[in-house]
Design a protein around this nucleic acid. Sequence first.
DNA 1: ATTTCATGCAAGTACATACTTGCATGGAAA
DNA 2: TTTCCATGCAAGTATGTACTTGCATGAAAT
Lengths: 191, 191
Amino acid sequence: MKSTDDRIIEAAIRVFGRDGVSGATTREIARSARVNEVTLFRHFKNKDELLRQVIIQCSKRYEHVFNEAPFATPDDLRHTVQNFASIYAGVILENEDFVRTFFGELNRHLKLCQRLFVDSAKPARLKFIAYLQAAQKGRLIRRDLDVVTAADALTGMLLAGVIRRPLTKALYPYETFVETCVDLFLKGIEP
Amino acid sequence: MKSTDDRIIEAAIRVFGRDGVSGATTREIARSARVNEVTLFRHFKNKDELLRQVIIQCSKRYEHVFNEAPFATPDDLRHTVQNFASIYAGVILENEDFVRTFFGELNRHLKLCQRLFVDSAKPARLKFIAYLQAAQKGRLIRRDLDVVTAADALTGMLLAGVIRRPLTKALYPYETFVETCVDLFLKGIEP
DNA sequence: ATTTCATGCAAGTACATACTTGCATGGAAA
DNA sequence: TTTCCATGCAAGTATGTACTTGCATGAAAT
């Protein structure tokens, strides 16, 4: 049995993702959580506080997924990149609407978005970059490449694929797109 | 001397970009256009109609930029890709807030966003893809690559770079990121 | 000189939304 | 059994926002 807090947060995630932050109403969130609107305000001081808790909750979740799934396979660069890309793509695809909405809110909620998108993925990002740097020392990646920027270029492709998905899903499935991105990246970093 | 219509649309572009679609108020748009709020409603039936006109106006602008700037240089793949990337990056970077906001609105205004992001860039996109296909026939690009998806991967990197910019600009300037993307892409498509 | 027209301004309407208060209820803990 | 405590419900407040109406004004067209 889920706690009322959790039900409200789950509902808020759905409604924020669907209607946007200022488009989401406390009434609709409460309705979606099957809870009286008053109960919502008994659990969360106000809409802003609810938003904060939603972000904190989601950040923890993302961080957990990133940290639980080991992606680095020693001596197998291709495999490592594929794993990393697949985990990263998986997380954002599962939270497609939510992710899209909050990138749209970047200017209006910079701090929260930083926690949501940067802090939660930081350990995994650093681990991936460290792996690339090691591979670069081992001559598996060309020396003239800035692997930090390159890593962000990879996640950027995957992110854009999700954000644009409603515009492109008639053209190709997202999985195909991810494959091409990984393919491009791997060929692109070769010496 | 700019027409009142134009002043209102310019203001709406700014305010929509800054405050989001449902966050933007007609009062604030009017204020920003230095026009009485009543005047705004005399020129545009309602907020939705103003939104439509804003999108139409911006689409035309983007389309114009894409069509005016010739990027294809025969027999110089690198140059062509660089040109295309630089034009594409230029347009979205100049409209950073607006672009971010409306990608966040993709689910809620699919049709308008399609016009804004897909239709306006369609001719340029097709031209670029045709160029890549020709280069692929000329053995400048590896045969196993799906150039359509690859082209979208390139624009995806550039787009994500802009959308994430408030989160990354402390790390590297956008221009550096664009260079790395083009570099990765060019190496990635080589036979 | 007269008319036309775009605009400003003051005021107001209707509605939605965030948030509050007071009371009733039912189930779990004491 | 009694006491809590979380919740529901009805009602209400305060504010913001889209949008309207009526009138005044000044500049340009006739």
